[in-house]
Amino acid sequence: MATPEHPSPEFGRRVRQLFLGFVLVLLLALVLFWRIDNPRAEQLRLRVVDLVVPQMERLLTPVGRLSHIVEDFQSYAQLYEQNRELRRELQQMKAWRETAIQLDQENARLQHLNNVRLGPNLSYVTSEVLVDSGGPFQQSVLINIGSDDNVRDGWAAMDGLGLVGRVSGVGRKTARVILLTDRNSWIPVKVQPSNSRVMMAGDNSGLPQLRFLQNAADVEPGDRVITSGDGNVFPAELLVGRVVIDSTGQFRVRPSADFRNLDFLRLVQAFPSPPIPNQGDLVAKAIDPPDPAIPADPATSADSTPSDASGGSE
């Protein structure tokens, strides 16, 4: 056949086929690795994204702005109408703002009177959305803060108003937020005013479904949907959206968050209170020491109160 000194086309083709087969086997191995050790593979992916995306930010910003300009241009046509509407809305909002301030003051006063302590374990970090890596498979966005800013997996992400999704995958300077609408997103929610507890499952359409509803009569279109805090996934009482019915009669949620303009996300830091493993434990601990040391009792109950209070305010 071919000697190394005079490689014939035939020889080159053989080498190429061998190389191709080798690469295909490697790819197959990569797929299997991704499937078998998914967390590690995703971590690897995030590390790559973490390296590249912050560098891309400079490039992304002007292009993103350009696309905004195009969008804005479409609305110039209705500028006058929009302006009038905004003014009207602004008037209403001013009234609301006044009301809100008054209520806030009143609330603070009443809380002070009642000596209420709010759960200290809820606070916010705000982040900027870098890129939207959604597709037919995943509806997710990348944000510009990560483990350097103490972001952890599982935190809730909101825009100004409603829930947007959940942090899933944290790199050093970036983190990935899976949107509510993603197929892998299952969130325990509560429908008000009936307080029925339901699961909200994304299906890659804009309106996530309500699943496992016990009594359909309890829910009506227009009802408010908030997170229930069940299963310690999320803090409770975050606004999600409103109930709608689709053409097949399936209950769905129209998210309050504006998914068209996800520019900034507010991550709700949640440090879940340590679970109480067994129902009797709190009491049992107090009883366990058999000596008649009664003063020990208030101490233990005082210890447990803060976690109780935070559990309630989650």
């Binding site: 797929v31 690795f33 991704w34 992916r45 790559v48 890596s133 498979f137 995943q138």
Partner: peptide, 10 residues
Amino acid sequence: DIFHMRPLGL
């Protein structure tokens, strides 16, 4: 695949 969050390599 990496940036579009698809299954890696498939």
